[in-house]
Structures are given as C-alpha cells and as structure tokens.
Design a protein around this nucleic acid. Structure first.
Lengths: 199, 199
DNA sequence: CGGCTTGTTGGCGGCCTGTCAACAAGCTCG
DNA sequence: CGAGCTTGTTGACAGGCCGCCAACAAGCCG
C-alpha cells in the first residue's frame, strides 16, 4: 500500500520496460486479458498510462510480450537427459515436463491455453511456437533425429494430451502427479512404438 | 446488402431471440469475442443495440449462449454403436468423434478452445460441460459403467488429445484423417487396457 | 376507434484505448 | 556553476464500446 509520493523520476528505457513488463506479467497471470486494463498496469507500476503505449505499442502488443515471457522455459535440463533405453528416456522427459509445468503452473498453463484471447493470429502464433518447442523436446528425448512434418504434428498432438492431463492435476485437482506421470509415459510409449513409425 | 428500409416491426420474443442468436453465432464463429461488438450484431440483425441487452443481458451472457449452441452436439448415434469387441467399439467412437468435429469444425473446434476468452469462470464451466459430455461418450463406448472421478478425469484428458489432434488435421492441415484416426484409436486402446484399470 | 400492453428505440453516462503536444529530469558544455 | 538540450514522462483529447432506462409506437382488445 505505498501511496507513491509520485515525484517524477527518469529511468533508463530498459529498466522502465522491464518494470512495466513484470507488473503486466503478474496481473495478466492473475486475471485474464479482458479483466486487466492498461490503467491497472499503469497504476500498479506507478506510471502514466501513455507510457505503456510508448514502450509497447498496443495493449495486445504488451500482452504478446507477456505471453512470450510466460511461455519461455529454461531448456536447460534437456541435455542432461539419461541415455538409457526408451522407457527410461520417456520417464525422464515426462518428469521434466511435469516439473516445468508445476513450477510455472499458474503462468505456463494459463498462457498455453490462451489465457484470455485465442483466435487472434499473433497470439496463436506465439502459443504455437511454445508447443513446437515442447514437441521438439519430446522428439529429441525419444531419439528421433529426422523429423518429418507428420511426426512433428503428432508430437504436437501429444503435447495437447500432456497439457490437458496436467490441467486435470493442477487446476481441477482430481488426478495425482503419479497418475499423470503414468498415463503420459504409457501413452507416449505406445505412440512412439506403434504410431510414429508410420510417419 | 439489404439497406433495410427500417420500418419498425414487432416480433414474438422467441422469434426475436432466435434471430439475434443466429446472427451472433455466425459472427462469433467467424471472428473472436473481442473482435465482435454488440453494435455489429445489432446492425446485421437490423435491430437497436439496446435490444440485445434486453434479451440476453450482458455481452458475455450472449456469448455464453452462443458457446452453448456451438458446443451442443446431437448425441444421436451414441446408441447405435456396435457391440463388437474393444477394438471395434473404439474404432466406432473415434470415427463418430471425427465426424462430429469435422462437420461442425469451424464452430465446435473454435468454441472448445475458448474461441475468444478463456479464464472466465462461466465460459470455462460451459466448455468443461462439453468436455464432460465427450468424455462420457468415450467411457460408455468402451464399456465402463462405474465411473470414478479419476477415470472421468482420464477420459477428459483423452478428449484433450483428441481435440489437439483434430486441430492438427482440420486447422493446420498437416495430418490426414486416417492418420488422426489411427493415432486416436491406438492411444485409446492403450489407455483403456493399461491405464484406466488403475482408476 | 380509443386505450393498453409490451416489443423496440435512441441517447446518456461511464470506462477503456491510442495519440500527441507539452513538460521537466538530468546530463553536457561553456 | 548555470544555461541549454535531449528525451523520458505526463495529462488531456477524441473515438469506440457497453449497460441502462425513459420514451415511443406496433398491434391487439374491448
């Protein structure tokens, strides 16, 4: 509840951008796109509303940056996946996915389901990129080097399964992590051995 | 391009409601929630804007009705599913699902992915109901009578897979119907025989 | 034909967004 | 150290959309 004794202060453009963006990430993560006004972001950032447009352009442009932040995931542990046989590698990639999703749950899950506005072309493209990244991670984990478009599409489908299953766990709270892990592992094993081969 | 020689005409409430709703379904189906204004709906329906609020309340209330219309699917053929063994029944339910989705593709797929505003509580509930219906259809088709919450949640997850896979076929156009059918059948078979049992 | 019910309209107030000219914080140079 | 200048920052303006409501009139009824 800082009443913000608003002495006007100058910041470096990068610092100001970052400050506004962090507030926007928090607000858009809590509520949806339509429920957050640029006035809200400006007020909580202690800044004039016009400054948001100055730095980010349109409200939708700001939202796009927010989505990219929320969907950006440290692809670190990808290299440290074990070298065992297929079931072991599948177990590892599923565990990695569940770790990432549960850690960023309130933002990642919200963003990947277009928390506020699907149907928009640019938003869809940003989400699609995140799905691509996850699909690539799955494919490399299970050891596919030559990726045909068909195979890639099937991996994207699997990411859809992983997302909806994770939501049953994290948002609706009816599945346990173990159940989710088991479902996703067995399903991926089936898809790799029986379906991906035809791609 | 009817210039609408606007002689004011009285309709029965039901007829007026239906007329406005049909226009809204078309517009919201073409563009997203934010891209359609109540002014647009009113203009194309040849009606004053206030009448929309009179009949439906809020714009979001109108959108809810539209979503319910788009997600409502004739559950006819459910009773006419074959009585063969598991693979046959799975084949039938997958085919039925793909028929429904492809027939209503531009509306059902758009609505089920919250074509315009996820995160809203009431919209989420409407979508969740549609997922429940599809999940129930799958469960009855594969012959599960006692449905535990866990089992239901897993069926919902599968519907998520079916939705994302169908989108790779209908919207992105990279999978063929046969590929989708094969993927969904084999995956459902695996889930039924290896995963659902633990529920 | 006159009155009445009620479907229908148009405008008001409020909120939100994008833009832009004016303002001033803080650096630079004489 | 002060004047000037760069540029980060502000506040107000115009346009659009939404919810509401009092007034209007279409069509029925006595």
């Amino acid at each position: 509840m800082s009443i913000d004794v608003g002495q006007r202060r100058r910041f470096s453009p990068d610092a100001r951008r970052e400050q506004i963006l962090s507030v926007a990430v928090r607000l858009f993560g809590e509520r949806g796109y339509a429920e957050v006004s640029t006035t809200d972001v400006a007020r909580e950032a202690g800044v004039a509303r016009g400054l948001i447009n100055h730095y980010f352009g349109t409200k939708k442009d700001l939202y796009l940056e927010v989505i990219r932040v929320m969907l950006t995931v440290p692809p670190v542990a990808l290299a440290s996946l074990p070298d065992g046989d297929l079931p072991v590698r599948i177990d590892a990639i599923v565990g990695w996915f569940l770790d990432v999703v549960s850690r960023h749950s309130q933002s990642w899950l919200a963003a990947i389901t277009a928390g506020g506005m699907a149907g928009d072309a640019e938003v869809d493209r940003a989400i699609s990129s995140a799905i691509d990244a996850a699909a690539d991670a799955v494919l490399t984990a299970v050891g596919f080097s030559a990726v045909t478009p068909t195979l890639h599409a099937m991996a994207r489908s699997y990411v859809g399964l992983a997302t909806s299953t994770a939501r049953e766990w994290l948002e609706r709270g009816v599945l346990t992590r173990d159940q989710v892990h088991r479902l996703l592992s067995l399903t991926l094993l089936t898809m790799v051995s029986s379906v991906f081969g035809d791609a």
